[in-house]
Computed example of a mutant assay.
Amino acid sequence: MVSHRRTSQRGQTTFASVTVLSAALATAAAALSAQPASADPAEHPSAGRESAAARVDKLYEEAERATEKFNAADARTKELRDEAAALQDRTARAQERVNRMRGRLGALAAAQYRAGGIDPALRLLLSERPDSYLEKASALDRLNGSQAGELRQLRSVTRVLEQQRRETAGKLALLEASREEVARNKKDVQRKLATAQRLLNALPRDARAAYDRASRSDGRDEFIPDLTGIVPGSGRAAAAVAAVRAAIGSPYAWGSTGPSAFDCSGLTQWAYAQAGVSLPRTSQGQRGAGRQVPLSQAQPGDLVIYRSDASHVGMYVGNGQVVHAPYPGAKVRYDPVGMMPVQSVTRP
């Protein structure tokens, strides 16, 4: 069971926008800055370490943007797949209806043939596309009222069938394009994460350990803010806050929506699903999933959207803290609401 303690100095001062290796490498960086301008950077590996760490941070940020694009394309693909399946089902039913009508009219043609020959007008029934012939009024004039009604109905149903076939083909083409977009974004995420991992692996052991301690909360000193007495503004917000806090310590996994691992928008979507509220899949979508409120009026359960492109989201839980899924290698955790530039606050 998670216990609560008073807000620590660490929780008040930790900001993701600060270079994550600054604490571990401050001494080395100061020594580097004191060297003459002509000094060889190769003689001061701390400069390379800081550059590598900054590059890792940048790659993780880019990977998160690519992840949200992947999430959007993946969600769209699922929608298109359902829409295409529904259209295919409707098209199949329309085809069955056309087949039944052709069968009835074919039986009429067969009866006429046995009686001495098929009326020329009924020969159109043997065609897959009788519509052009049916446009001629004289063709219907040769048939009795019942036969003409059957043919008009066949024409109408055939037109519907052809329209549904075109719609289905268009939807399937969109589906294929969306699948290709998912694959492209997936490769983009994997490429950026692999590059970041290579850079981390190349860091000396002490620098890598410092990076993990500074930016990824290695589990030995988890920060837990004091949220005593903080009450969300609604019952569903309270349920979402309880869910997101229960996810503390779960690993980050891009493209995941829980319940054992999450990316940023997957976490907030999952938490609100536990409260019976459906949120869009991406942080950009979640930005518009409610009423915008000023940051100064944020209440527990509000969604805090970060960066100008709305590529990150966390849930405000009170006392100046959010819970969010930060980035690969990190756990779902508390961080100050001002850990990075706030774009907007949404109240679902």
Rank of each mutant, 00 (worst) to 15 (best):
D263I: 01
E83G: 07
Q299H: 05
S38L: 05
G229H: 02
Y316D: 05
A26W: 11
D263K: 05
S283T: 07
E135A: 10
E222Y: 02
A26M: 13
R287Q: 14
D221S: 12
L200G: 03
V231K: 15
G145D: 13
V313H: 02
E83N: 11
L175V: 03
A325R: 10
V293C: 01
R5S: 08
M339K: 06
L267E: 03
Y316C: 05
S178E: 15
S22V: 09
Q190W: 02
T195I: 06
T7V: 03
R307C: 09
G285A: 09
S22W: 08
G235S: 13
W254C: 11
I118L: 12
P259Y: 09
P300F: 09
G229C: 04
T346H: 00
E180K: 07
A53Q: 08
L172I: 11
E162C: 05
G258V: 06
F15I: 14
P120T: 01
A94F: 06
V160Q: 12
P348I: 00
Q12A: 09
I305G: 04
T268W: 07
E83I: 07
T13E: 09
L174D: 13
V323A: 03
F262M: 02
S215F: 02
R205L: 13
R100L: 14
A246N: 05
K58Y: 05
L126W: 08
A194P: 02
L143M: 14
S308M: 09
A183K: 08
P341C: 02
D206V: 07
M339W: 00
A31G: 08
A111N: 08
S265E: 02
A94Q: 13
L193T: 04
T257P: 03
E128A: 15
A183P: 00
A121E: 05
D335S: 15
A66C: 10
K171E: 15
R6A: 15
S8I: 09
E176K: 09
G48Y: 08
A28H: 04
Q197C: 02
D141L: 15
V231D: 11
R102S: 12
R81C: 01
P326N: 08
A325V: 10
R49Q: 13
R102G: 10
Q274L: 07
Q284N: 07
S22R: 06
R333K: 10
S278R: 09
L199W: 05
S265M: 03
P120Y: 00
K331G: 05
A107Y: 02
L32C: 11
I224N: 03
L303Q: 06
T19R: 14
R6G: 12
G338M: 08
P300W: 04
G149I: 04
S344G: 11
E62P: 01
E61G: 11
L80S: 00
A310M: 06
I118R: 11
D226H: 01
L279Q: 04
G329I: 06
L154S: 12
I248M: 11
L161H: 12
S278H: 00
A148S: 13
L143A: 10
